[in-house]
Design a protein around this nucleic acid. Sequence first.
DNA 1: TCGGGGAATCGAACCGGTTCGATCTAGGAG
DNA 2: CTCCTAGATCGAACCGGTTCGATTCCCCGA
Lengths: 348, 348
Amino acid sequence: MNIGEIARRAGVSRSTVSYALSGKRPVSDDTRRKIQQVVDELGYRPSASARALANGRTSTIGLVFPPAGNHYTGMQLDFIGSVVEAAATYDYDVLLSPSGVDSDRSFQRLLGERRVDGAILMEIRLEDDRAEHLATLDFPSVAIGRTARPEGSWWVGLDHTALVQRCVHHLADLGHRRVAFVNRPEQLLRAGYESAHRGLDGFTKAAAERGLTVRTYCCGDDAASGQTCLERILHDDPATTALVTLNEAALGGLYRGLAEAGRHVPRDFSVTGVVAGRWAETVTPQLTAADVPAAEMGRLAVDLLVERLDHPDAPPRHHLLVPPISLRASTGPAGTTPIADAGPDTTP
Amino acid sequence: MNIGEIARRAGVSRSTVSYALSGKRPVSDDTRRKIQQVVDELGYRPSASARALANGRTSTIGLVFPPAGNHYTGMQLDFIGSVVEAAATYDYDVLLSPSGVDSDRSFQRLLGERRVDGAILMEIRLEDDRAEHLATLDFPSVAIGRTARPEGSWWVGLDHTALVQRCVHHLADLGHRRVAFVNRPEQLLRAGYESAHRGLDGFTKAAAERGLTVRTYCCGDDAASGQTCLERILHDDPATTALVTLNEAALGGLYRGLAEAGRHVPRDFSVTGVVAGRWAETVTPQLTAADVPAAEMGRLAVDLLVERLDHPDAPPRHHLLVPPISLRASTGPAGTTPIADAGPDTTP
DNA sequence: TCGGGGAATCGAACCGGTTCGATCTAGGAG
DNA sequence: CTCCTAGATCGAACCGGTTCGATTCCCCGA
């Protein structure tokens, strides 16, 4: 079942079999046919390990993703799926690597033991030691996300700042004056998660531009946290009439909190944010949001990585995506809620 | 940066380095220290490919999961995460393999090219060609799910029949007489998906036992489908007062359909089913459901696979899980809805 | 008729580890 | 003092491919 066996049965040398299969040198038609016949008969397939050892490439890419400790979001699933699928079209396999607190161990396996030709990093932080490490090693990698200084590196990211700004402007245009921001969990913010930071920046900036009264909150990645977060929002400022969130997993809890507080969406309260489209549609009313094109981002990341692998000296490339806000049903004009500081121009 | 280089710098032979690192033969303390020092200095790590070639094991397991064409459900994400995490504790890496329509291509890569030592199969069908294929090859694998005849194979599954039966009994105990079943998409049912079939069986059986009037539906794996499915249910029999579902992704849509039809959950309509706990909590009111212990199942699958890899002659083992129903807030006693065929013992 | 050149094939080395058998040495028993 | 054994180390073969240089053979032009 190895190349020597094929060679023996076909009555040729091992190298001829190799050339016949790879096409890297001409082989006569007769010989090729004979070899192909034997190969088909025995269902021979060359060993990936041997091939990897011989030509120094594993045809595998590593996908470094967050450990299960953090709750997974639907977005991440879409990333993984699309990365695997895109990699398959290039004949690459995908090796999953959880990058936990001891990111070293996992990294050592991937890089030190040369299990993969390149890597895709998820859940990027503004100051990302993993990304820096890979950069100093000049190891082919593409980040899904953008560090604080992304110059000279390969990445595909979302312009969270701009997206959240748009959300705020959208709310301001509707007349909302008191708006809350529901961010990812505090520990992620402290860890420097890119989306949490840039989203917050965008919120703060846009709120200042429009002169809004705002409060910002961190919120755990689950429904229960979302609910308590909403309770806090209304407790801190009952006149709040809208919120912007990055927190997909808390969304259901935010809605529940609103329902239990008797605030009808979108009549009494508007909700918007940055969320994968598929999840924005599961809540009622459907969320008006900037849809994260997770599948596209995964595909683009693989495209970039393959390009980098094929052309080691190619200059760095990146994609910064700014998907439009999908208008669904969760935002509406700021109404005259009992405690709201409504403008003077309300109808009598 | 290879073992020869280490040997040279440490002034010993390559085999001594190998033995020093693996501990498979005694090495003097002096020599071991010297070698370790050189290794640390150079940050040497043995090449995975070379090692795999030499000892015939890749320290990698394959995770065969459904292609992105089907929408992913949250459950699958939990499986993937827990499998990766559990595998890491055994020092195994996880290679993702999309098993699409041309499952052959992907399988050939995994098995033919010997990229993995064993495999875990997700999304099992009652008649599963992949599982059969692996069984005839005697390739170490564990299924997450149970085929029609699981005897003699390794798997960890959920007793969908029993779980759905419990859901039905729960509803019947609450007085519901007209109940609908919302299954996975029709194409999956036709393809023979285990959960869809066994769940349906359980539903039909329990409904017959309790003499309920029932209808069964297939429903796409997304919110929009859930909504239209619910519209059909109420159109076909407006007196329906409860439903049982296996379809996690449609849940949000089902709720929306109920809301738009003016049916309040759980006062006018009860909803229950088999859904991963985390997702059951994102809807309002929170879903009373048999919580799929996806993380535990992933871990168990890895445990079984590792056992099988370590003891090639061990007799087949499996785990059939029957998690309890978590009572949350989506079910209640059957009320007297306008069109309901309520029993004679209603209060005046 | 002879030489040159290209196509087809072969043998051997190499990738970077593991492992078997052999050699060498030192220490303890007889 | 000799013999035996166990511990430490080495060299070589092997895993299963790829690839380089050399060889053979045939056809064509001079």
